[in-house]
């Protein structure tokens, strides 16, 4: 269970002015739920992710995982970034084992676990390849394995499919759902893509910028397992439409402005 209570975060820019990245954020995420953070650029969704990760301290409010306040990075958290950021000098399996080496947590069966994870995401046989030999999608799969290697209870994903092409993106969404079904985890997923958020999530948190705050939390009433066929269902359409109207305004005024 992740508890975020009345959290605020302000950054000081280079010229000395302050920017309120987050203001009065309240959110509770039960175990093994899939939550998406959606919103325009600058709404603080990535900052919120980093606060939960313990990479950035909050200015005010409380963030707790299973009742313990988050003051520094914690072992039960795994992170996936927009770019795979694999170490270019290490083989795929070494990249997956990287967190264990940093945490001095290598065990005799760790290597087997890495191989199992790679097989789970369809990278069996690529263990000893180097990152530059893999496509972007395959690199991101390896990055997901790296985040899962220490079996974290919480997976934080910061636009993990943002750098991928549309087809690979859809494929990876289904892949992620499959992994999540096989190894249930609490997932906090930052994305720009509205349909992706609806397809994946139990709840979608819609945020608005300046200052970053939560507009609305939308429950996605779709059954599991999910598939892209559900995009046609009116529940899906309703959710997507609701999110869209929250982000762009009911009149479509900001949509026109953005275009």
């Amino acid at each position: 269970m992740i508890e975020i209570g009345d959290v605020s975060k302000t950054f000081t820019t280079r010229d000395g002015s302050t920017v309120t990245a987050l203001s009065g954020i309240d959110l509770e995420i039960p175990d093994n739920q899939f939550i998406s953070l959606v919103g325009p650029s600058g709404c603080g969704k990535s900052t919120l992710l980093r606060l939960v990760a313990g990479l950035v301290p909050a200015d005010a409010g409380r963030i707790a995982i299973d009742g313990t306040a988050v003051r520094e990075p914690r072992r039960e958290v795994g992170i996936v970034f927009q770019n795979a950021t694999l170490l270019p000098w290490a083989s795929i399996v070494e990249n997956v084992l990287f967190p264990l080496k940093i945490m001095h947590a290598m065990r005799p069966d760790s290597r087997d676990r890495a191989h199992d994870l790679l097989r789970l995401v369809g990278l069996g046989g690529f263990e000893d390849r180097e990152p530059r030999e893999l496509s972007g999608g395959m690199q991101q799969r390896a990055a997901i394995c790296r985040a899962l290697i220490h079996d974290p209870a919480i997976l934080l994903m910061d636009e993990p499919f943002g750098a991928l092409d549309a087809l690979t993106r859809e494929e990876m969404s289904l892949e992620l759902l499959r992994i999540w079904t096989e190894q249930p985890k609490t997932i906090l997923f930052v994305t720009h893509a509205i349909t992706e958020a609806v397809l994946l999530s139990d709840r979608v948190v819609v945020m608005s910028p300046r200052p970053g705050r939560i507009d609305e939390i939308i429950d996605v009433p779709l059954p599991r397992p999910r598939s892209f066929d559900m995009e046609g269902l009116h529940e899906f359409q309703d959710c997507a439409q609701r999110i869209r109207s929250l982000i762009f305004g009911r009149s479509g005024r900001r949509l026109a402005g953005a275009a």
């Binding site: 980093r50 990760a53 990479l55 990075p73 950021t85 967190p99 940093i102």
Partner: peptide, 27 residues
């Protein structure tokens, strides 16, 4: 070094020395 790689190290509580010899120097 990409900032995400540094954040990755931090998220696993890499020490300054680990960050240097496992991430920064090889990079």
């Amino acid at each position: 070094v990409p900032s995400e790689l540094i954040e990755l190290g931090r998220s696993y509580k890499a020490s300054v020395w680990q960050e240097l010899h496992r991430i920064r120097l090889p990079y």
